Simulated assay, not measured.
Amino acid sequence: MEHEEDDRPERAEPLTDAEREIIQDTWGRVYENCEDVGVSVLIRFFVNFPSAKQYFSQFQDMDDPEEMERSSQLRHHARRVMNAINTVVENLHDPEKVSAVLGLVGKAHALKHKVEPMYFKILSGVMLEVLSEDFPEYFPVEVQEVWNKLMGALYWHVTGAYTEVGWVQVSSSAV
């Protein structure tokens, strides 16, 4: 039991009003291209971490990024990911709503999809890479630090949901 707690990060410091404003402002610019950005994030995620494709039967055999980009299933999942983040960003002023949304995401991925929680941390890093590369004018280092703080909070909430449902690690060699 003690080991499970070691894997869970410490709760992130709450975002300040200024940090929430920075996130909402930069997200507004990203979300204008939400599907394309989401697709870019997922393609990079699956190319760099092919073991993550094991959870997606519909594109686990795709290795070509162009084929992934054309996949309607991948586009659909990209929209879902981006819409979930949008819901979080829109509700940063309401911690209970954020917690509820991320709790649902975590529980679904733990119980229904059986996704290792570490993939959320990896995906967060990939997303920050893509955002800083594709939107360098909106993601200078200071903004990236604020987004990193948000991603830490998202991971904390999602892993909390995993703990709540009694998640048992499926494999230690997933990555």
Rank of each mutant, 00 (worst) to 15 (best):
G38V: 01
V101C: 07
R75Y: 15
H77W: 06
E66W: 07
V47H: 03
M82W: 02
R79C: 08
D64R: 04
N48F: 11
N48W: 12
K53G: 09
F59D: 06
E32D: 03
F49K: 11
L74P: 13
F46Y: 14
N33H: 13
I43M: 02
H77G: 09
L15K: 07
S72A: 12
N86V: 11
E19T: 01
S99N: 09
Y55K: 06
S72T: 10
M82T: 04
D64T: 01
H113A: 10
V98I: 08
F49D: 14
I122M: 01
H113E: 06
V47D: 04
S124G: 12
N33F: 15
E35Y: 02
S99Y: 03
L74V: 15
F45D: 02
A100W: 03
T87S: 12
M82Y: 01
E116I: 05
E21V: 14
A100T: 07
P95A: 04
A78D: 09
L104W: 08
F59L: 07
Y119D: 13
E116G: 15
N48T: 12
Q73E: 12
E66V: 08
H76I: 10
F46R: 15
F45M: 03
P65W: 09
V88F: 04
Q73C: 05
P50D: 10
S124I: 03
R20D: 01
F120A: 06
E21Q: 15
P50C: 07
N83Y: 04
L104F: 05
P50L: 09
P117D: 05
I43F: 04
L102F: 07
F59C: 07
V39H: 02
H76M: 14
S51R: 13
K107M: 07
E90M: 11
I85L: 10
T87W: 11
F45N: 01
A18R: 08
K121P: 08
H109D: 02
K107V: 06
V89I: 13
N86W: 11
S99W: 01
I22C: 13
P117V: 08
N33K: 14
A108Y: 13
R80N: 10
E67F: 12
G28P: 01
E90A: 13
K112A: 08
E32W: 03
Q58P: 05
G38T: 00
S57L: 10
E35C: 05
R44I: 09
R44S: 06
A18F: 08
